[in-house]
Design a protein around this nucleic acid. Structure first.
Lengths: 344, 344
DNA sequence: CAGGGTTGATTAATCGATTAATCAACCCTG
DNA sequence: CAGGGTTGATTAATCGATTAATCAACCCTG
């Protein structure tokens, strides 16, 4: 015996009004030909009964579940909440639910996660891929949020432009010698950010890149980055590809007795939750997650709802109207004129 | 015309073997009486065809979707990733998917979020409630992860014991004068943590509580907490209810030229992602999210799967076998003997 | 006024899995 | 060897919504 649903169903409404359930369905969906009068009556009683359609029934018949899957590279990534929130909001507005799948940091598990979603018959998948992952062989529309320079990227922040904006800001304050702090050079996102930064270093300026993962391979995990020596060598601006690394740099500098922003400046990326409450407040650059989520969901939904008509399944990765969304500089207290510039 | 599913279905397997689809269903579920021989043959061909059952079909018939909803108070909360990851993992192991719903910081939206999940026919809901929210009138089993002192809590970390462990650690280092840093006294979690801390302040010791939200109401958002004065007043230990606030305290102290841990100690809560990479590494206390998620999911699944038999819907909030899970101290570099103790 | 067209509805099939009810075949046992 | 019991299967209904096909009624128009 199947369990009775709390609410009502189409045939209850139909019985109540003495019409067929097909008519009720047509009236509520606005598809078939139903007189305006009857439509009104059906809508009213549906509202009275608090009718909500059974998504299982609909899914079975239409082959679409109204659910999207969200695959995240590393759920522990502190940027995750912002993205998940934005995606959930955009999807919800488009009438879709969001099923999460965690790839727990491994590429193999990312594939597992995707398969889990497909088994649940999601209509589409949003992926924020792991470093260097190629998305392929997925049997439903996929939107990829990574970096404009990634082949098959659907939409993402314009990380390159973000990098430019950060260094332009620092240059305008008088900085010339930059230490750019990245984590892993295999990341397209990080490379774009660093590339944009480098492209704005002026004539006569200089920029070195410190890759944390490499540094930790030789010096041990969690080891000091040796920033004091860099300061002694004349670096005045420390621009990280993530607030996480900026925070690491900031605390290390503070601990060494180097004043931020009086002696040197520190900048981050992503405007993570703590960036506004630390002392000094972190200058960073924010991605417009709401916009990115909207574009990604819109692109996905367009393909999903087109698929319904044509039986031709579109290629896996969907394209969006815009593939990048500008980032916005948030100036707080960790950036200021360099000590040397004040002297000069 | 409904869209053909990628995979195969029960009747295809049945046709291939010349049996009825009921038999196939029985063989795969192990419920009806099917000869061992035939069961084996059916299982084999199902595996060959890569058969995955249609969850929509099953959901329609059984009234269960195999999906749980996860409602989070404030998705921007940096603890969220850990919890979401743990829940997703535990649910996935139990054969359930996880649909997320974000309450975006408001109680009204929390109700909306819950309703959205119910419309999608989730089998159960896990809620990490907003401050002071009462969960009621929900038409499906609910597990609440909040605090042991919250009425209707299903399972949570033992925040009180966590507070005790932190202060015991600090006391053993020689600290006697504590500034306990909370955010909002309406939070059961924060109150438990603070309560546990206070309960371990020894005879002759002293503990003040600084509530950040109150402080910001009079001093402005993001304002300094005035910790330098507290140090001058003899406080040597700054124990926050979250790593977020500990970080705020740490950077403010560093900025004031106060050395951590040489002059004073700072501790946090939750072992958020950055706590291990800052300098000095933050001493904190970690909740066993995996265990909490396991217990919550197990409790929920037990009720869901019992409901299938008895038609009696259980009361909304489910109870678990254990309602609290101990927290674990993670000692890093921000805690050490107080300066005064060294002198004395 | 015969017959094509439109309007507004109904009928009936369908998506896939589950399960109560039924049934055929066979095995025992008194 | 009649008849109850068990085994191993099938039949058929069902969950709820959607939609192609059909149909009745009516309106026009040549």
């Amino acid at each position: 015996m199947a369990i009775a649903r709390a609410g009502s169903n189409l045939s209850q409404i139909a019985a109540l009004l003495g019409v067929s359930s097909a008519t009720v369905s047509n009236a509520l969906s606005g598809k078939g030909r139903v007189s305006a009068e009857l439509t009104e009556k059906i809508r009213a009683t549906a509202a009275d009964l608090g009718y909500t359609p059974s998504l299982a029934g609909r899914a079975l018949r239409t082959g679409r579940t109204g659910v999207l899957g969200l695959v995240l590279p590393d759920i522990a990534n502190p940027l995750f909440p912002q993205i998940a929130q934005a995606i959930e909001y955009a999807a919800s507005n488009a009438g879709y639910g969001v099923l999460i799948a965690d790839s727990r940091g491994s590429v193999a598990l990312q594939t597992d996660a995707i398969n889990r979603l497909i088994e649940r018959d999601v209509d589409g998948i949003i992926i924020v891929p792991r470093l260097g992952t190629r998305i392929a062989d997925i049997d439903c529309p996929v939107a990829v949020i990574d970096s404009p320079s990634t082949p098959g990227n659907t939409v993402s922040a314009d990380h390159w432009q973000g990098g430019q904006a950060v260094v332009e800001h620092l240059v305008s304050l008088g900085h010339r010698k930059f230490l750019l702090i990245g984590n892993n050079p295999a990341s397209n996102v990080q490379n774009d950010r660093i590339g944009g930064m480098k492209s704005c270093v002026p004539e006569g300026g200089h920029a070195d890149v410190l890759w944390i993962e490499r540094h930790e391979q030789s010096h041990g995990k969690g080891s000091l980055l040796g920033l004091q020596k860099k300061v002694e060598a004349g670096f005045t601006a420390f621009a990280a590809v993530s607030d996480l690394h900026a925070l690491r740099a900031l605390t290390e500098l503070q601990r060494s007795g180097i004043a931020v922003p009086e002696d040197v400046s520190v900048t981050g990326f992503d405007d993570l939750v703590w960036s506004s409450v630390i002392t000094p407040g972190l200058t960073t650059i924010r991605m417009n997650t709401a916009e990115i989520a909207d574009v990604a969901i819109a692109a996905l939904v367009r393909v999903i709802e087109a698929d319904a008509g044509s039986a031709i399944p579109a290629g896996p990765v969907v394209a969006a109207k815009r593939s990048s969304v500008p980032m916005q500089l948030v100036v707080r207290q960790t950036s200021g004129p360099p000590a040397k510039a004040q002297i000069a």
